[in-house]
């Protein structure tokens, strides 16, 4: 459905913006390595099913491989331009994010199996994985425009999934309570950023010619 596709496209665009931005500037300034490491953990735990060699669809499999690969690649290039990283604070204690997500995964899951717990863990972790990046953005005061576009596209992805879940509930009678709860939490985490983004990008672009 249209919401699902839009969400996936936003996700693709976000990672392309990120890699393009770091590659062209040859600098990872303002990019949180910790957020990227968390995303790597998110994708590893969510796509464990790849190991079972159960390929639901070509589309899903290719997208999963792309998200895994591109996240590892982004970590690689951020590390490559790592000198700048020491110049700003990326000292968010990610243990405080990972531990509660693990507890949440143990409490909320559909079956007490490794795959199901990992799946739930990945949903909760994804919801909060952007926090180190938002923290870096805030400590910098003024964020780079590309970084801001990257965060916006990433937030848009999960926001698009919410109408997708409503749509699937009515058309397929399927509802994943954990996905929805984590997805709503994620969109709330982004909501403050969305407001700042709206003021910064849309209002500024309207009054460009001085």
């Amino acid at each position: 459905n249209i919401f699902r596709i839009s969400g996936d496209v936003a996700h693709l665009v976000s990672i392309i913006i990120l890699i393009h931005s770091v590659e062209t500037k040859k600098s990872a300034k303002g990019i949180s390595l910790k957020t990227q490491l968390l995303y790597a953990l998110v994708f590893i735990t969510r796509y464990l099913s790849l190991l079972k060699l159960e390929f639901g669809s070509v589309y899903n499999t290719l997208m999963k491989l792309f998200f895994l690969g591109s996240t590892f690649y982004s970590i690689f290039i951020i590390k490559k331009y790592t000198r700048e990283i020491t110049q700003y604070v990326d000292d968010f204690k990610i243990g405080y994010l990972v531990a509660p997500c693990f507890v949440a995964a143990l409490v909320f899951n559909y079956k007490f199996t490794v795959i199901e717990i990992a799946w739930s863990f990945s949903l909760w972790l994804e919801a909060v994985a952007i926090l180190p990046q938002l923290f870096v953005l805030q400590s910098q005061g003024q964020g780079d425009l590309l970084t801001v576009h990257y965060i916006f596209a990433l937030g848009l992805y999960r926001a698009f999934y919410i109408p997708n879940w409503v749509y699937r509930y009515f058309t397929e009678e399927r509802l994943d309570i954990i996905s929805v709860a984590a997805g709503v939490l994620q969109t709330l985490v982004y909501s403050d950023f969305f407001y700042v983004y709206y003021n910064k990008v849309f209002k500024n672009s309207l009054k460009l010619p001085a």
């Binding site: 699937r168 009678e173 994943d176």
Partner: peptide
Amino acid sequence: KLVKNLHDEL
């Protein structure tokens, strides 16, 4: 009945 995981999503 409605609570089903959506492992077909990304």
